[in-house]
Design a protein around this nucleic acid. Structure first.
Lengths: 93, 93
DNA sequence: TCGAATGGTTTATAATATAAACCAAGTACA
DNA sequence: TGTACTTGGTTTATATTATAAACCATTCGA
């Protein structure tokens, strides 16, 4: 049976990647709301995805407030697609 | 976003359930080979699935050798189907 | 000006997955 | 007959992961 990329096989990281697949970019607050995660957990998981090169994280400013914006990379897109293919073999799809 | 049943969101347990969905029953040795897992790991994960009521585990004898046979329960089937539905919302299927 | 809200990060803890060590029974064979 | 190996597991220790709690800097509102 095919291996399931453990970096993607995690509910929160998968949710983040899934969102980023459908959107040009998304900021920290948006991801936090959409995934209903705590800020701490999200922060850690974004770091992991970023370290793996699956997403790029830009820390900027929106007016006077900090703003962290994320987008998926080509590598991330590829990893996600491979993950989906592997999963299908488990799900009988 | 929908929750992904954590009991099923584990590579090995998902593999086991996936196999059992397509087969009347399967024994320990077969599952071990198909999933390429270690006996220890498989034993633990079968216990978890069994405790949750997702599979039934029969310990019998095949000639003079012990033989553990597993099959999926109605509850397990239902849980798997719900898991698949939830996952689809992540995978854009 | 001081208390609360915003937007995070760091760190401690709980939960999980995995492998290593172990065990009982059977088998092979010198 | 005894002893070394295989089979079919289970139990337990450890490494990894996920998650939450605590924290920090800045800004906003009364």
């Amino acid at each position: 049976m095919k291996e399931l990329n453990p970096l993607l096989h995690s509910q929160l990281r998968l949710a983040v990647i899934s969102i980023l697949m459908n959107v040009e970019e998304a900021d920290f607050v948006y991801l936090k709301e959409k995934t209903e995660s705590t800020a701490g957990n999200l922060s850690v998981q974004l770091d992991k995805l970023s370290s793996a090169g699956y997403i790029s994280v830009e820390k900027g400013m929106s007016g006077k407030r900090p703003r962290t914006t994320c987008s998926i990379t080509t590598e991330g897109r590829k990893a996600f697609e491979e993950y989906v293919e592997a999963l299908k073999t488990y799900l009988n799809l």
